[in-house]
Design a protein around this nucleic acid. Sequence first.
DNA 1: TGGTGATTGCGCTCACATTCACAGACAACA
DNA 2: TGTTGTCTGTGAATGTGAGCGCAATCACCA
Lengths: 207, 207
Amino acid sequence: MRYHKIPDETVRRLPVYLRGAMHLSQQGLESISSRHLADLLGVKPWQIRKDFSYFGDFGTPGVGYHLESLIKQINKILRLDAGQKAVLVGVGNLGSALLAFPGFGMYGFEIAAAFDVDKRKIGRRRGGVVIGDIAKLRNLRRRGICLGIIAVPEDTTQEVADTLVDAGIKGILNFSPRYITVPKRVKVITIDIAMDLARLPYYMPLS
Amino acid sequence: MRYHKIPDETVRRLPVYLRGAMHLSQQGLESISSRHLADLLGVKPWQIRKDFSYFGDFGTPGVGYHLESLIKQINKILRLDAGQKAVLVGVGNLGSALLAFPGFGMYGFEIAAAFDVDKRKIGRRRGGVVIGDIAKLRNLRRRGICLGIIAVPEDTTQEVADTLVDAGIKGILNFSPRYITVPKRVKVITIDIAMDLARLPYYMPLS
DNA sequence: TGGTGATTGCGCTCACATTCACAGACAACA
DNA sequence: TGTTGTCTGTGAATGTGAGCGCAATCACCA
C-alpha cells in the first residue's frame, strides 16, 4: 500500500499515535505492539496496523513497533520535525489560555508571535511573547512563521484570515465559529467548541 | 428515509446548520434555500438537503426552508430545547476561558457549576458561578446537570471522569488529550487542540 | 385556474474507510 | 538449528457517507 494516497482519517489519527508513542517512550519502553498501543488509545489494533502500513514498514513481526523510530517517522510525515512556528491573533480569554497552553510544545510547536487590536494589551508580555499591534501584522514569512491561530470575535474572523493569508500564512487553526474563505492552497482547520458540546445531548440517554 | 438511522456525520453537521439558521434569522430573513445556506456555511447544497431529509420534510419546494421552524426542529432533534446545564471541572487557563466563553449561550447551554482542586480558587466567583471543591462534587443529578466539561491536567483526567460518572453525568466534553474509559452509556467527545494543530503542517504546501 | 420557475426530497452510484482473516516474518529458546 | 508462539502487513469483504440528477412539489402570477 506504500504508493497509495493517504486517507484523511489516517492523517487525523497520526497525532494520536504520536502522542501515545511519546507517552510510552517517556516511561522507558522500547517497543509496543499494535494491540497494547490500541488499548492505551482506545482504538482497534488493526486500525493502527492499517494506518501505519500506508507509509511502509514501521514494525517488526513478533515484537511490535520500535518507539523511537516510530516517533521519528510520524514526526517526519506530519512535518513536525522542523519545529513549526505559529502566530496567534486575538489575545482574549481563549487566546491567553492558548499562550499558556503547554500542549503545543510536545509536537514541536512554538507560538512565536501574538497580535491584538486592543491598545491596552499591545506591548504587554504574555506567555513569553510581546503582543503586537494587529495593524502591523506583516512579514511573518521572514520570521519563518507559517501557521496562524485565530482566536478573535466572530465578526472580524474573515478580515483576520485575509490578513494572515497576505502575510504568507499557509495553515490556519480557527477557533471562531464562522466559515472563512481562503485561497485553496491554505489549509483551514476549525475548532468550534460550542458546536462540539451541542451534539453531546443527542447521544445522551433520555433519562 | 425517515426511519433510517441518522449518520454520525449528519449529527455533527446539525449544529452548523443551526448556527447558520439562527444567524440568518437574526438578520430578519424568513426563509433560506439550501443553495444559499450552503454558500454561507461552506458546504454543498445537496449535503444539506440529504441531511435534512433524514428527519422528514423541513422545507418547501420552490421556497426553501422556513428559518423559524428549522431552528425549532434542529433544537428538538439535538435536545437543546430543554436548556442543558453543564459542570466545569478545572478552572485553569482553559477553564476560565470556557467560563467566559459567550458561545455556549446560543445553543441554550449554561455552565451551572465549576470545580477545582486549588484551595486558593475555591470559593471565588468566576463568570457567574462560585468555584466549588472538587472533593464535594456530588448530586449534580438533583440540580439537573447532565453534562460535564473536563479541563484539568492530563494526569488527573481519568479520575475526574470517574467522579463525573458517579455524580450522574451523561455526557462529557473532554479537553484533555488522554483517552478516558467510561461506561458505554456515557458519551465522550474529546477536543484535543494541539492534535488538530499537529495535522495542519501535513496539508501545507512545501514552500 | 393553468402555466412557469424555483427548490426540495430521495434513489442510485461511487468513493472512501473500517473490519477481518491469514500468510509471512521475526524473536526466543531448547 | 528447528520449533513455537507472537505480531506485522495487507488483500478482500463489508459498511458508511458523499455526490449527483431528476421527478415531485409549491408559490406566484396572469
